[in-house]
Design a protein around this nucleic acid. Structure first.
Length: 325
DNA sequence: CTATACAA
DNA sequence: TTGTATAGG
């Protein structure tokens, strides 16, 4: 699997909030939400995160708990949602579905034998973004006046495009694909405590002595979400091979290797489907309406979101004060 | 996804 | 250095 390989290739450094404050970040919403669904629901019972009707509301809690981190550091999030799944990604999607189903089977088995803890643990792995989750998340973000963007295809590609064209200051994602899609800077670890990481495209290219096409070729040799890598080729070998043979085709020829759909995948990374979409970065959350939506309409226990809403309200007051000082 | 450990 | 397996989030 090549995703971890990209971490070795990329130039990544800490980016203290003080350095990035005031910035606008195009966040891969799916990725961001998924993180909360797998961590907040975690090993605990999912009672708190499911309504009496059995509707998942962990996403609402995740949004309320996750947004303060942006607001408190004067960062404006733009939440970018995925559009159509790229058909090149069909294999990957199928593989994920298999893993999900395998986890679901194990979960059912654990429940069967009365192992509630194991069942809850495996529950986290079967989480996915249902239509309801997508809808209620959008609704809540709307009430909080957080800009939402619908990507024509990959959310990460749209984030990268917005960063590359200056619509936003950075892409935001825990994955590395935004680098391949051409985001000049990507912020990572926006969910966890501590300073975020900044992944820098031009520094990466300089370090490796590659242009963007070269980086994409290297990544494809290692393996991406869209293709298996070439056996025996990792990040080190791939960089050397591109330097030696010029480009992907040269390396594939030399090693007598093949990558299915190579041309299309290469093109996808170099010029991914994305649109010029303007965003209104002037954010004025209606905290009361949001609280009403989450607590009254969806029945989330008030205590679960109280602190989050407080923090959001406080950060707004703070921002207001800043304008006068 | 991240980390770690070990075989090839 | 790379591949694979495994555990944890």
């Amino acid at each position: 699997m090549g995703n971890a390989d990209l971490r070795d290739l990329a130039s990544i450094r800490d980016a203290p909030f003080a350095e990035i404050e005031g910035g606008v970040v195009a966040v891969d919403a799916h990725n961001w939400l998924y993180r909360y669904l797998t961590t907040t629901v975690k090993w605990t019972s999912d009672e708190k995160y499911t309504t009496a009707d059995g509707v998942e509301v962990a996403n609402l809690i995740g949004v309320v708990q996750g947004l303060p981190k942006f607001f408190e550091h004067d960062l404006i999030p733009v939440m970018v949602f995925d559009g159509a799944v790229t058909d090149l990604k069909a294999d990957e999607v199928a593989e994920r579905r298999e893993k999900r189903e395998a986890a679901e089977e194990r979960r059912a088995a654990a429940e069967e034998r009365g192992d509630a803890v194991e069942a809850a643990r495996l529950e986290a792995r079967t989480q996915r973004l249902t239509d309801t989750i997508q809808e209620t998340t959008r609704e809540l973000l709307g009430l909080l006046d957080v800009p939402v963007v619908e990507a024509p295809a990959e959310g990460e590609a749209q984030c990268a495009h917005m960063a590359a064209t200056g619509t936003v200051d950075h892409a935001g994602s825990e994955d590395y694909d935004t680098l391949l899609f051409g985001a000049p800077t990507t912020l990572r670890q926006l969910t966890s405590k501590g300073d975020p990481e900044l992944m820098d495209l031009s520094a990466t290219l300089e370090d490796l002595g590659l242009d963007r096409q070269g980086l994409v070729d290297v990544a494809m040799l290692c393996g991406t979400d869209f293709n298996e890598g070439v056996r025996g080729v990792g990040p080190k070998t791939a960089v050397k091979a591109i330097a030696e043979h010029g480009d992907l085709w040269g390396v594939l020829d030399a090693r007598d290797a093949e990558i299915p759909n190579a041309e299309a995948i290469r093109e996808l990374f170099m010029d991914p489907p994305a649109e010029d979409i303007a965003v209104d970065a002037d954010v004025n959350p209606d905290v009361e309406a949001a609280r009403e939506y989450v607590v009254d309409e969806w029945g989330v226990a008030a205590g679960e979101v109280e602190r989050g809403f407080e923090r959001i309200a406080e950060s707004q007051v703070q921002t207001g004060l800043d304008r006068w000082t």
